[in-house]
Every structure is written in structure tokens, then in C-alpha cells.
């Protein structure tokens, strides 16, 4: 594999180990940006194995990470002017936390990778520093028993590593807490939005068509009024569920994500109705307006519910409980809205 971040090699008892740069290039930043938008994200990988950062020797620390390129980049960029070995596990290009949850960033892979890369012969000590979020996959006491290496769980964020190392491997409580701050939420929005937009590209033409077909004022007039109003509402639902709810997550009332999305959806529908009817001067009968007060919040609630997968604090038990009432409600709300809208055009 072509790996442009390799800038040379370091000699060790087992031969040359590739040396990697701690500086990210433009193409690294571009690759990260694309992955955030879901482009090439499932194939954004680094070759597993041992790498040298700086000029490490037999006493330098060993840092373990996943072979998702974004994880690898976060680690190496924090290590300018430092010396360390980087052991990259094969996690099929999935980040540390998700891979640990699925077991690929696990005890077996770690032990296998240590043997395979002959780490025993490269370093004289027997310590590994793992990201704390590898915990769901790696049992430290089993690694010790199986291969003699002591696993030290470092901080959650790679950027805290220098401080962690400089203070004798002591993590502050903050380093051990997974947060979900504004920035952390915002960078997750594009991937959610892109996948939702893909679906809406299939649905929106249908709404435009129906908007034209059911109009009493003629096809094109209908497309431009009812069809446009439908498109505005669907895009509003995406905005409410996949963008605004994640951003405003801590401030929206309720604990269930669906509830937060539902509220955001209702507010958005209200705005779109006012904007469409009064500003764009789109004529809508009451039934169609009512229809969107069902449909838009239902879609928004569904998208918000999906954001549980991106969040850093939702449990599976909780998500299942939420879905027990949220999914039926979303389906009923969505169907009611559709029936009202289609009915108002062709039946009632």
C-alpha cells in the first residue's frame, strides 16, 4: 500500500522499521475531511504493524492504535519532537472505540500483532500504552498472562498523551471522561446528513410529482407550490433531525433523542409554514398544512433517534427502550401525515 507518511526507517534488532512523520500533510487533512463527509470512510486504512515515530530506542514507549487512518493521524500529530513506537492493530479500518466494542481491537488481535511484529526484540521493557477506549475489547490482565506485556490504559484523547507521559502515566479524571461537547457533536453531523440526503434524493422527486399531479391549478403550478412546500418540509426535517438536534442536544427537553428530534421538528415545521405561506406566498389548504405537522416532526424524530449511534453516552438498553415507543410513534405520525397530504390532494 502506498503510505506517504513514511519518511524513512529506523534500525532495530529485527531489521528496519518504517519511520513515520508526525506532521500531517495537506492530503492527510483532505483525507480526514472526506472521511468526515462519508467519502471513502470505510476504506480509510493504514497497514497494520510496527512504526517508529521520531528516533525511538529500546526504552521508548509503545503506543497502540487502530488502523483507521483518522485514529492513526490523531496519534502521530500529537508526537512532534517525541520518540515512540506505534503498534497499529488490524481493525478493518474502524476506529478504536467501535472496534473495541466489536472485539476486533481486542486481546487476540493485540497478542497476535505483538508476536507478528516481534515487539519482544525491539523494546527491552514490557509495557504497552493503549487508548482508554480500547477497554471494551482488551482485557489487560489477559494480555499480561498471555504474552507478558503490561497494558496501561492511557487517556481517551490522543492529545492528552504528552501530558500523561510527562506526569508519570497519571491521567486526570478529565482525561478519563468521554464528553460530547459542541465540537464533538458538530463534526459528526456531515456523515449523518450525507446518508439522509441520499434517501431524500429518492423521495423528493416523488413529492414534486405528486405536488403537480394533485393540483387543481395545473401541473407546473402545483409543482411550484405544493411540491415546493413538500420539499421545503422534507429538507426542514433533515435540518431539524440531523443538524439542529445534534447541535442543540443538551438544551432540548427530554432524555430520549426521538423526543428532542420531535420538538425540534415541530418548531421547524412552524417556521417553514410561516416562511412558505407568508414569505413565499405558497397557498396551502389547512389539511396539507396539518399533514406536514405530522410528517416533518416524525422524520425529524427518526433522524434524531439515529444520532444515538453517533453519541458517546447512550446505552443499548436505553436505545431499545426508547425505540419501543418512538418507532411506532414515528411510523404512525409519518403515515398520518402522508394520508392527510395525499388525501387532501386526491380524495377529500
Amino acid at each position: 500500500m502506498n503510505q506517504p507518511f513514511i519518511i524513512g526507517s529506523v534500525q532495530t534488532p529485527i531489521g528496519d522499521v518504517p519511520k513515520i512523520s508526525s506532521e500531517l500533510s495537506w492530503s492527510d487533512h483532505w483525507g480526514n475531511f472526506k472521511a468526515r463527509w462519508g467519502v471513502g470512510r470505510m476504506h480509510y486504512t493504514v497497514d497494520p504493524g510496527l512504526y517508529a515515530l521520531g528516533e525511538p530506542n529500546e526504552q521508548s514507549p509503545v503506543l497502540v492504535t487502530a488502523n483507521y487512518k483518522m485514529s492513526f493521524d490523531r496519534l502521530r500529530e500529537t508526537f512532534s519532537n517525541r520518540h515512540a513506537w506505534i503498534l497499529v492493530l488490524d481493525t478493518n479500518g474502524i476506529n478504536v472505540w467501535c472496534a473495541a466494542g466489536k472485539g476486533t481491537f481486542g486481546t487476540d488481535e493485540l497478542v497476535r500483532r505483538i508476536e507478528f511484529s516481534r515487539l519482544n526484540d525491539v523494546v527491552s521493557h514490557r509495557e504497552l500504552i493503549l487508548p482508554q477506549l480500547a477497554g471494551p475489547g482488551v482485557a489487560a490482565y489477559k494480555v499480561k498472562k498471555r504474552i507478558g506485556f503490561k497494558v496501561i490504559f492511557g487517556p481517551i484523547q490522543a492529545r492528552d498523551l504528552p501530558k500523561f507521559l510527562d506526569t508519570g502515566m497519571k491521567a486526570t479524571p478529565e482525561m478519563r471522561r468521554k464528553t460530547f461537547r459542541m465540537y464533538e457533536r458538530v463534526i459528526l453531523i456531515p456523515v449523518e446528513l450525507v446518508s439522509a440526503l441520499k434517501w431524500s434524493l429518492l423521495i423528493l422527486p416523488g413529492f414534486l410529482l405528486l405536488g403537480g399531479l394533485g393540483a387543481s391549478s395545473g401541473f407546473w403550478q402545483g409543482v411550484l407550490s405544493d411540491g415546493l412546500f413538500a420539499v421545503l418540509n422534507m429538507l426542514g426535517a433533515l435540518l431539524a433531525g440531523a443538524v439542529l438536534t445534534p447541535i442543540l442536544l443538551p438544551w432540548l427537553p427530554g432524555r430520549a433523542f426521538s423526543q428532542k428530534g420531535l420538538i425540534m421538528g415541530l418548531i421547524t415545521t412552524l417556521f417553514i409554514t410561516l416562511f412558505g405561506v407568508f414569505y413565499l406566498d405558497i397557498r396551502q389548504d389547512y389539511l396539507s398544512i396539518l399533514a406536514w405537522f405530522f410528517l416533518t416532526p416524525a422524520v425529524s424524530a427518526f433522524l434524531a433517534m439515529n444520532f444515538t449511534g453517533a453519541s458517546t453516552y447512550t446505552s443499548l438498553s436505553g436505545v431499545k427502550k426508547e425505540m419501543q415507543w418512538a418507532v411506532p410513534l414515528e411510523i404512525v405520525g409519518g403515515m398520518a401525515g402522508l394520508i392527510l397530504w395525499v388525501g387532501s390532494r386526491f380524495i377529500f
Binding site: G101, Q132, G135, P136, Y141, F257, G309, T314, L316, M323
Partner: peptide, 25 residues
């Protein structure tokens, strides 16, 4: 959040949790 890190690492098996990804999709 039922990530299971504690149960995985508890050497005396004092912890249990039904782990899974809290993800609606």
C-alpha cells in the same frame, strides 16, 4: 452506556453488563 470495558477488564469477574452498541440503526 454499557460499553463493557469494566466487565472485560475485571479480573475477578465481579462485574456483568449486557453490552452492545447504543445505536438505533
Amino acid at each position: 452506556m454499557e460499553c463493557g470495558a469494566c466487565a472485560m477488564n475485571c479480573p475477578s469477574e465481579a462485574l456483568t453488563v449486557e453490552t452492545g452498541v447504543g445505536c438505533a440503526a
